[in-house]
Design a protein around this nucleic acid. Structure first.
Lengths: 333, 333
DNA sequence: CTGAAAGCGCTAACAA
DNA sequence: TTGTTAGCGCTTTCAG
């Protein structure tokens, strides 16, 4: 069949062990021998079999990545950060979509473990007990990216969602807004729902403002759902003069939903988004938003994972990346 | 270490061969034995080692996917189609970004082949001789998705780009436009550049219209580059009254570039995009565009690949999916 | 229906 | 510096 290490050994007139050494860059090989082997490799177009190597060495240089939905503009950018760093450290990636579905997630973890990945990078809504159990059913390191875990016993990379949301709403309050609306994701969702919602409430209470439930509308992260959510907010008699939106895509929906009703942004209503995806500059007016560095979250989490896979010392496995507000034209100057 | 097929065999009081049969669903096992084995598997929490299996069977149930950039809204949707069908057929995916860089692409093919993938799904600008050679340096099947190959000796899934572009421009001509601009990708780029450009010219000549180079502006597929491209078109004295844009993202740039100059879309200038990404409905006015079914291209190409991997008969390896125009508000009714 | 045994292609001691 | 030799955990004949 295809040429093996034995063929190369025979061609070069050495033992297979020597070929293995050359292939693996082991320095204990006489330069002359190395050359002979390299020539044989080239002549036979030898290509090492990573599967055999993986079986013998118990390292596959492959990591599993579980992501809710790669077609989401948010996660795809995160994935790019992951992949770039993985490549840098010579790892390949097995990419799996979970749709945030718990059964799928657990099934995927198992599949990845069967494939003997050297580590797992997990993105999802939440880590339950069952997740933790399955993830620990093996000794491979796991890093959580943009994912919530109450007990914090997994390494993870996030921003401070509560504080970030609070910052955005505080800014709105400081501009004098009395009624600030929020278009949130499902409150069952730890990150995009609950934590951002909590930041919203924290901001209100820290400024001594009353919370008014009628100012909250729930979307499902799609553009269209946000258009509907905004209608809901507008149908109340006491309209908000500013709206904080949990994601950029929904923020575009909010802006257009407002404009479709003849309401001007930011003159009549100011809008603030969250994420700073590429969408934020692709609307008129351009979107003021909380910057969440997706690419960096991916990159940093992959870097962290490589440290664990190499058994390097890690001082702090729970990393919180900085966030900030990017002011554009959906808020007044 | 971790439990192996031997441990299970011992626990169940059978041979490892029998365990293997049970795990692989081989029907030649007495139900009673099967139950014993299954119990042992459960008790020991046995998880088959896919790497060992791959080495022994020469099948890894893994396919390699080479994609220019997963963070692109276009490719990430394609990737989702690929992944869904792969999952359906029990394959996993190793995802690699190539940035459309020939050296990287060739390197990646080699890496994937080392990892013993059962097949390769390739997306990229173009397949050169060198690509073809590397791809054939192994007997694994290869399918091209949304990728151009002159000689057509690889199976592939595409739409008819020339015809699709031609349809869009014809429509514009039929509406009475005398001067139709185009914002194109680089003409070196076979699909997004050259083919769509050819469709544009074909439409013109089939209607007996003169080609005017000053109506063409080149972008690099980004939103911002399209804004610049539009300035260029507007700076000429004989402005176009309609613009055909090679991708949706650039079309958004064109629309906003126009609006920023106080030009109304579609009243003053009509705009037609290409792809029908989710962006198309996320602008005001919403974008009239050529529908390219990205998800389907991914799904169909993966399905095609599974057929080759299973050595099924394939009647036609070169599939051309239908396209159509979706009329929205960036063109007049 | 079940077991024994020979690999799959490579790494990693251990010797020499 | 190089070779020998066990495995890694599984699939797959081939017997029985």
């Amino acid at each position: 069949m295809s040429t093996t290490i034995y063929d190369v050994a025979a061609e070069a007139g050495v033992s297979m062990a020597t070929v293995s050494r050359v292939v693996n860059g082991n320095p204990n090989v006489k330069p002359a021998t190395r050359t002979k082997v390299l020539d044989a490799i080239q002549k036979l177009e030898y290509r090492p079999n990573a599967v055999a190597r993986g079986l013998a060495s118990k390292r596959t240089t492959t990591v599993g990545v579980i992501i809710p939905d790669i077609s989401s503009i948010f996660f795809s950018e995160l994935a790019r950060g992951i992949e770039d760093i993985a490549t840098m450290y010579k790892y390949n990636i097995i990419l799996c979509n979970s749709d945030n579905n718990k059964e799928k997630e657990i099934h995927l973890v198992n599949t990845l473990l069967e494939k003997q990945v050297d580590g797992i990078l997990f993105m999802g809504g939440e880590i339950t007990e069952e997740h933790a159990e399955q993830l620990n059913r093996s000794h491979v390191p796991v890093v959580l990216a943009a994912t919530f875990h109450e007990d914090g016993d997994f390494p993870s990379v996030n921003i401070d969602y509560v504080q970030a949301a609070k910052d955005a709403v505080m800014m709105l309050i400081d501009k004098g807004h009395e009624r600030i609306g929020m278009v949130s994701g499902s409150l069952e969702d730890p990150v995009n729902g609950y934590q951002k919602f909590r930041g919203y409430k924290d901001a209100l209470s820290s400024k001594g403002k009353e919370f008014d439930e009628s100012l909250i509308a729930i979307g499902d992260y799609t553009y269209d759902s946000a258009i509907e959510a905004v209608q809901q907010l507008l149908s109340k008699d006491n309209r908000p003069s500013a709206i904080f939106v949990a994601t950029d895509e929904m923020a575009l929906g909010v802006i257009h939903g407002l404009q479709d009703q003849g309401i001007n942004v930011p003159e009549d209503v100011e809008v603030v988004g969250f994420d700073n995806t590429r969408l934020a500059t692709m609307v008129r007016p351009t979107l003021t938003t909380v910057v969440q560095p997706m690419y960096d979250i991916g990159a940093v989490s992959m870097r962290l994972l490589t440290k664990y896979m190499n058994k390097e010392e890690v001082s702090d496995g729970v990393v919180v990346l900085p966030h900030r507000l990017e002011y554009r034209n959906s808020t007044k100057a």
